[in-house]
C-alpha cells in the first residue's frame, strides 16, 4: 500500500519567515505569477469541455428554432420548462430510468463480485492453467462490440431472451466488458502485501475466509474504481439495447433518448435534450461528490502501474 504518498505533492516551498532573502522573494513572486497564468491556461482549456454540456442543458429550455441556430446562443432567449414535462408524457420515461438504473446497479455489483474473485485468484492462487485461462479472459479486452453483436444476438435469440434485460446484465458481467475489471483487480491484488493474508491464515481462516474478510475489505478503493467504470459503461450502453430490446417499457435511457421524434421521424431536440440532461446531471453530480474517492481509488488500483 502506498497510501502515505497519495496526498498531493507539495509544490510550494515550505512556509518561510517574513524575512526571506530578496532573490527568494522575487522567485516566489514569479512563481505566483506563473501559477495564475497556469490557472488562466486551465480556464481556456476548459471551454471546449464545458461548452457542449452547457449548451445541452440550456438548449433543453429553448424552442426548436433557437436550438438550430448556427451560432449557438449561450442562454435561452425565453426559457421554458415545457420540454421536461413532455419527456414524461411521451414515453414511460420513469420506467426507462428505473430500467437503466437497476441494470447498471446489478451489472456493477455483479462485475465487482466476479472481478474481485477472478482478480484475486489470478493474482494469489496457484493452480495449473492459470496463465492460459488469464490470457483467454484477456481476449475479451480486444473485441469491439460491433464484431460480435450478430453472433451474440443469435445466441440470445436461441435462448429466447430477446426483449428481456438478461443479455444486458449477463453478458457485461461475464463477458468482454468485465475483463478490464478483472485486469484492474488482478493488478491491485498483485501489489497488495501478503503479510495480512498470512496473518489471517494463521488465525485459522480458509482461502474463502481470507478473501472475504481480508482481501476484499482492503481492495475497497480498487473496487470503487471498477464500480465507477462499470456503472458508466452500463449507463451509456447503446448498441446492445437497441438490438436486444423492442418494447418501450423495457428500453434503457440511451435508447429512449432517440425516441423523442415528431410524427415524421425528425427529432424533437428540446425534449431529447431535456431527457439527455436528466440522464447526465445525476451522474455528473455523483462524480462531483465522489471524485476524490475516485482519483484515490484509481491511485490505489493497478491502473496506476
Amino acid at each position: 500500500m502506498r497510501s502515505e504518498i497519495i496526498t498531493a505533492p507539495e509544490t510550494e516551498a515550505p512556509a518561510t519567515p517574513v524575512l526571506v532573502p530578496l532573490p527568494r522573494r522575487r522567485a516566489r513572486a514569479r512563481r505566483g505569477l506563473t501559477r495564475w497564468l497556469l490557472v488562466v491556461v486551465l480556464a481556456v482549456l476548459s471551454l471546449p469541455f464545458v461548452f457542449p454540456t452547457w449548451w445541452m442543458a440550456t438548449s433543453s429550455l429553448k424552442p426548436m428554432s433557437e436550438i438550430l441556430r448556427r451560432v449557438p446562443t449561450l442562454w435561452p432567449q425565453d426559457p421554458s420548462f415545457d420540454a421536461y414535462g413532455r419527456v414524461f408524457t411521451l414515453q414511460p420515461f420513469a420506467q426507462q430510468y428505473w430500467n437503466s438504473l437497476y441494470i447498471a446497479v446489478v451489472v456493477t455489483l455483479g462485475t465487482m463480485l466476479v472481478a474481485a474473485m477472478a482478480g484475486y485468484a489470478f493474482a494469489r492462487i496457484r493452480f495449473p492453467g492459470a496463465n492460459a485461462l488469464f490470457v483467454l479472459v484477456l481476449v475479451g479486452l480486444l473485441v469491439p462490440a460491433e464484431v460480435t453483436i450478430v453472433p451474440l444476438f443469435r445466441i440470445v435469440n436461441t435462448l429466447g431472451l430477446v426483449d428481456t434485460h438478461w443479455p444486458l446484465i449477463v453478458v457485461p458481467v461475464l463477458g468482454a466488458p468485465a475483463v478490464l475489471a478483472v485486469f484492474i483487480m488482478r493488478q491491485f491484488f498483485l501489489g497488495l502485501p501478503t503479510e495480512l493474508e498470512e496473518a489471517g491464515r494463521l488465525d485459522g481462516l480458509g482461502r474463502w475466509g481470507v478473501f472475504w474478510r481480508i482481501a476484499v475489505p482492503l481492495s475497497r478503493s480498487a473496487l470503487g474504481a471498477v464500480a465507477i467504470f462499470t456503472f458508466l459503461k452500463s449507463w451509456n450502453l447503446y448498441l446492445e439495447p437497441v438490438v436486444y430490446l423492442s418494447s418501450k417499457e423495457s428500453f434503457t435511457l440511451p435508447q429512449a433518448l432517440t425516441q423523442y421524434v415528431d410524427a415524421y421521424g425528425g427529432p424533437m431536440w428540446n425534449v431529447q435534450l431535456a431527457a439527455t440532461t436528466l440522464t447526465v446531471l445525476p451522474v455528473l453530480a455523483v462524480f462531483l461528490v465522489a471524485q476524490k474517492q475516485f482519483v484515490q481509488g484509481l491511485a490505489h488500483s493497478g491502473l496506476k502501474g
Partner: peptide
C-alpha cells in the same frame, strides 16, 4: 426501432 438504427437493428434481427 430508432430511426437512425432501423436498418442495423432490423438486419440484426434477420441475421439472428
Amino acid at each position: 426501432i430508432p430511426f437512425e438504427d432501423y436498418t442495423t437493428a432490423l438486419t440484426t434481427q434477420l441475421a439472428g
